[in-house]
Design a protein around this nucleic acid. Sequence first.
DNA 1: AGGTATCGCGTACGATGTACGCATGTCAAG
DNA 2: CTTGACATGCGTACATCGTACGCGATACCT
Lengths: 224, 224
Amino acid sequence: MIQKKKAVPLSRERIVEAAVVLADAGGFQSLSMRNIAEDLGAGTMALYRHVANKEDLLDDMVDGVFAEMYAPAIGGDWKRELRDRGISARTALRRHPWAVGLMETRMHPGPASGNHHNATMGCLREGGFPFRDAVHAYNLLDAYTYGFALQEQTIPFETPEESGHMAAATVGERGDEYPYLAEVALELGKRGYDYAEEFEFGLDFILDGLERYRRTIRSRRRPR
Amino acid sequence: MIQKKKAVPLSRERIVEAAVVLADAGGFQSLSMRNIAEDLGAGTMALYRHVANKEDLLDDMVDGVFAEMYAPAIGGDWKRELRDRGISARTALRRHPWAVGLMETRMHPGPASGNHHNATMGCLREGGFPFRDAVHAYNLLDAYTYGFALQEQTIPFETPEESGHMAAATVGERGDEYPYLAEVALELGKRGYDYAEEFEFGLDFILDGLERYRRTIRSRRRPR
DNA sequence: AGGTATCGCGTACGATGTACGCATGTCAAG
DNA sequence: CTTGACATGCGTACATCGTACGCGATACCT
C-alpha cells in the first residue's frame, strides 16, 4: 500500500508551531511562507486556508511567546511573583529572539497577552499599589525587561572569549578615543559577562525600589 | 537654457538623510531602495555607488539617531547628565520610531554610537561608580530607555480619547475576564496618559535608586 | 446519488534587494 | 587636442517575497 498523502491535516496550531520552530532556528529573515509550508510538507498556498495573512500568523506567534511567560498569581506575594515573572519573561524572549522586534509592530494582542498583562497588573494592585503607582511599577518592570531582551540580542556573545573579542572589535583601533569603552572590552574579556546574573541584578534593584516606594505611599496615606 | 540635470550630486550623506526622512514619514515598510531613489530624483542603482547595500545604509541611519542623543559630559554631575541623556534618548527614539526595531539587528555600531556609549560609561565611572557597578547602572538605564521606547510605539495613542478607545478595543468584550485590564482602559480613558511624564518618573526612580546604591558602595569601602 | 462545504495547491503578479555592465562626465598625461 | 583612467549614474534582469484567484479533490449531509 502506498503511504497516505496526509496523515496529519494542516491546522492553525501546526502552522504557528512550525513557524516558531523555523524562526527560532533560522532567524526571522528565514521565516517565509514558502519555508513554513515546506517544513510542513505542504504547498505554500495551503497555509492561507488557516491563516488570513502573514501578519495574522505573526500575531499568533507573539501571543504564543506570552503564553510561555509565567503569569503571576494575583493574590500572592507581589515581589516574589513579579520576580518569577520577570525571569520567566526574559527566558522566553531569549528563547524566541524574533519576538522582541515583532512586538513593536503588533497591533492585535492575543488572549495570552491579555491574560499575562491582566495578571501582572492584578498582582500589583492586590499587592497594595494604588492605581497610578501600579501603572508606574508596571511600566518600569516591562520597559526594563523588554529593553534588556532587546540589548541582549543586539550584541550576542556567550562566552568570555567571545565577549572580549566582540568588544575589542567594536572598539576597534579607537582604544584611545573611547577609553571607557576600551575598559569595558578589557574587563568583560577577562571576567566574562553573565546575562542572567545581570538581568536579575537590575530586576531586584527595581523590585527593592518599588518596595521602598510602596512603603512611602502607605505611610503617607494615614499621616499625622 | 534647459535645466541642469543634476544640480546636487548624490552622496552618502544625502542618501542617508533622505532615507531617514522617508522612514520617519512613511514608516519602515515604505523604506525601499526604489522609494529612496525616487525621492532623490535618482535611479535606483545609483544609490549603490555610495552604499554597499541596504544593511550598510541602515547602519548609518541608526548611527544618525545616536548622534541626535545628548552625550553626557564626563566630568559633570552624573545624575543630572544622565537624566538629560535619558530624556534626549527617548525623544530621539520617538522621533525615529523605526530605530528601536533596527538596533536589534545592527551588527556594526558606528562612531556616534561609540561616542555616546563611551560618554555614558565615562560619566558613571567618573561619577564614582566602580567598574562593575557602572556596568549595572548602565544596563539599567539603557534597558529601561530602549524598553520604554519599544512599548511607547507598540500601542501608540496620544490623546485621552484615543487611549480610552484603544484600551477598550484591546480588552474587547472581555471586561469580566480581565478586570485589571479593564480598570486600566477605564482610568486611562478618563485621565489620559502622558508618555513623557511616565518616562521621567521611571528615569528618576532609577537614578534615585542608583544614588542610594552608590552611597552604599562608598560607605562600605571605608567601613567601621 | 447528488449537492455543498472544506481543504490543498498551482499559477501568476507586483514589489523588493541587488548583480552586472554600459554610458557619461572629469581630469591628467602625452 | 587626444587619449586613457577613473568616478558616477542608471537600465535590465533575476531571485525571492507575500498573496489573489480559481480549480480539483475530498468529506459529509440529505
